[in-house]
Computed example of a mutant assay.
Amino acid sequence: DDVLAMMKDNGGIVMVTFVPGFINEQVRSWSANRSAEQARLNSLHPGDPERARRELAEWTTAHPIPRATLDDVVAHIQHVRDVAGIDHIGLGGDFDGVDALPVDVEAVDAYPRILGRLIQNGWSDADIRKLAGENMLRVMRGVEAVSESQTALRPNLSRLNDR
């Protein structure tokens, strides 16, 4: 939350991700417990990684991963808005690089469901426009302005001394 609050001062944007372990406490806790179990099994069977993998699979079967949901995504977006402010939030998604996605948020076709739920929760049309792209465009225009202001500067060719 401390980092989110800094967005108000620096003009930045937080692109909200849908990674289940970031938006749902039960998923985060399950992942931590699985990692601890994996470390425990690896230390019990240091010369037998196949046994450790097999026993971890058994643990996972006995302790199925909880699922994050559309409600978790909406609550996460609302929290980021509450802390960072409506001018500093965007949709990041992060549909790649995860083993699972929240229920009803498995692909980009979830965006209308997410936005619809936010509208039901009282978000205005202007708020939705900011979240859906206007904030990102504002930040990118700022990046372009800084880039243009630097074009006349020579690159710094100095090097740190090798030690």
Rank of each mutant, 00 (worst) to 15 (best):
G12Y: 04
E134A: 14
G116I: 10
M136P: 01
E134Y: 09
I114W: 05
A62F: 00
A126D: 13
D48L: 00
D104I: 07
G93I: 05
R53L: 15
D71W: 00
A110D: 03
A107Y: 08
G133K: 06
I65W: 01
F95I: 09
F22V: 03
K8Y: 08
I128R: 08
P66E: 08
I119V: 13
L131S: 06
L70D: 02
A100W: 09
N33D: 11
L137F: 05
R81W: 07
L118F: 06
E58K: 09
T17E: 12
G90S: 06
L41S: 06
N10R: 01
G47S: 12
M136G: 07
A84R: 06
K8Q: 13
N135G: 03
Q38M: 14
E37M: 15
V83S: 07
E55Q: 14
L115V: 11
L101A: 14
A75I: 02
R117Q: 11
E50C: 04
D1L: 11
L101S: 14
I23E: 02
D127G: 09
G21N: 04
M136F: 06
N33P: 00
F22G: 05
M15N: 05
V73C: 05
D48P: 00
D9W: 12
A62S: 07
V27T: 03
W30C: 01
D48Y: 02
A57L: 10
R53Y: 09
Q26C: 08
V14N: 12
I13S: 05
G133A: 05
V14F: 13
A62T: 03
R54H: 10
I128Q: 07
E58S: 12
E58I: 07
L131Q: 01
V108Y: 11
V74H: 03
S29H: 08
I119M: 05
R40K: 08
R53E: 15
Y111A: 09
W123T: 01
S124W: 13
A57V: 04
L101V: 12
S31F: 11
T17D: 10
N121K: 15
L70I: 07
E134N: 08
A68Q: 00
M6G: 12
P102E: 10
M15C: 05
S31A: 15
V27C: 07
G85N: 03
T60F: 03
R28P: 03
V98W: 13
N121Q: 15
W123C: 04
L91Q: 03
A126G: 11
N10A: 00
V19K: 14
D96V: 10
A110M: 02
G90D: 08
E106F: 04
V74W: 00
I65F: 07
N10S: 03
A39C: 01
D104Q: 15
R67K: 10
Q26Y: 14
N10M: 02
H63W: 10
A62R: 10
V16C: 14
R40G: 02
V80R: 06
V83C: 06
E25W: 06
V27G: 04
L4V: 01
Q120R: 15
I89P: 04
G97R: 13
K130N: 08
F18P: 00
I86E: 10
G92T: 02
H88N: 07
W123I: 00
E50M: 13
A107T: 10
N135A: 04
A132T: 08
D2M: 09
E25M: 12
P112A: 07
V19M: 11
E37L: 02
D71I: 01
A75E: 11
L101T: 13
P46C: 05
R51V: 12
T17Y: 00
